[in-house]
Computed example of a mutant assay.
Amino acid sequence: MNDGYATIHELAPERRLRRLELTITRRLDGLLHGQYLGLLPGAGSEMSGSREYRPGEDEVRRMDWAVTARTAVPHVREVDADRELTTWVLADATPSMDFGTAELEKRELAVAATAAVGFLTAGSGNRLGAHVLGTESVRRFPARTGRTHLLGMLRALLAVPGGAEGVRPPALAEAIAGLRRSAPRRGLVVVVSDFLDGLPDDDGAASRPDWEAELRRLAVRHQVLAVEVADPRELELPDVGLITLVDPESGQRREVSTGSRRLRERYAAAASAQRETVRRALRRAGAAHLPLRTDRDWVADIVRHVFAQRRLAMAAATRRNPA
């Protein structure tokens, strides 16, 4: 993002949004342009018929039980792509996102990811809605079309105030449940968060994040893309002597001597286990996973994700319709 001038963090909100829009339209749109969002290709929701079930390829939740009962042979429903796409974004703007040691803070990276989704789905008739999980409540934006609507949502995400010390924000699980109730029609749902809320205290096999069950329920009706935002200092500690760490949501403080090699190794191991817990939970919930980091080129990471999704979709189509 750095082009030799001020970083996005140093720009006024309107200039931040303008630079984001230029970045997305110049670098992403030329590579990913199409009728529908390429972040997560998949089926639509209009019935077009049935075909025989293929074990290992088809989802059981797409079974056409009426045809199966009539023919005594398992069949699945076939659907055509929706002519109009409705996309919902759940953007995490809780205090844990107000952290960053690279060019971007996690909150700004979340805004960039939301902007990418918005600008790339701004086709004719496509609608975008959002739930912004803030420090004290969830702000809801109805699904509408247009650039003005998108920019209004991005401004709101940039302007979410920091939380008061010791005040716990709404839970991510509650926010996901609220979005599920607000979006009855099938569409694309993008959850942008660090997914640190509701993680289990231990790494036991039976321990699962609080939000996993709600995310799984969301994925029953919608295609779900989970954009995980992380900062390198959340994954490992540098040797910089004695530092004070502050939990932005609870206000708890602790002095840590980063000169201890054993402590740094334990920290890195715990962080790795935590991220693996998130990855496993997203996979079990049926969500596609796009990890972004504040010290990486987020545009390149989105492009790689899209190309990987398209390769998978093409491979699946080839298996279904061999030459």
Rank of each mutant, 00 (worst) to 15 (best):
R310Q: 11
R221N: 10
G204K: 08
A143F: 04
A6Y: 10
T68I: 05
E212Q: 15
D29F: 11
I302F: 06
P170Y: 04
L109Q: 01
L37G: 10
G204E: 08
R19V: 07
R77Y: 12
D92T: 12
D197F: 05
W65K: 06
G163C: 13
D58I: 06
T87D: 04
L215D: 01
R18K: 06
G259E: 09
A317G: 13
R319A: 15
G146L: 03
V167W: 12
A300P: 00
A113R: 02
E84C: 07
E136T: 13
L128A: 06
D231P: 10
L128S: 05
V306P: 00
L290T: 06
M1Y: 13
P142Q: 06
R107A: 15
H289G: 00
E212G: 03
R264I: 00
H33K: 14
A300V: 04
A81E: 15
P161V: 00
G178F: 03
K106L: 03
E234V: 10
Y267K: 00
A316Q: 12
A268V: 03
G163L: 12
R168H: 14
F195W: 04
A317K: 10
R311T: 10
T114R: 09
L235P: 07
V229A: 09
E165V: 15
P184D: 08
F99V: 07
Q309G: 08
G125M: 07
E10Q: 14
D295Y: 02
S250Y: 07
V191G: 07
G49P: 07
V89P: 00
V160G: 03
R233G: 05
E84H: 14
A288E: 12
R320T: 09
D295K: 07
G100V: 01
L158R: 10
R185E: 13
E165P: 09
L196W: 11
V224F: 05
P74Y: 08
R266H: 12
G56N: 00
A159Q: 14
L263F: 15
I302Q: 05
E236I: 02
R140D: 08
R83H: 15
R107Y: 07
P238H: 08
D98C: 04
L292A: 05
A281F: 04
A72R: 13
D80P: 04
R181P: 01
L292D: 02
R262H: 14
G129T: 00
A173K: 00
A102H: 07
A12I: 06
V256L: 15
T294W: 05
R144P: 11
R186G: 04
A112D: 10
G187H: 09
E57Q: 14
L290F: 10
R310P: 01
L290E: 00
R216W: 08
A91T: 12
R27M: 05
F119C: 02
A213H: 13
D58Q: 04
Y53K: 01
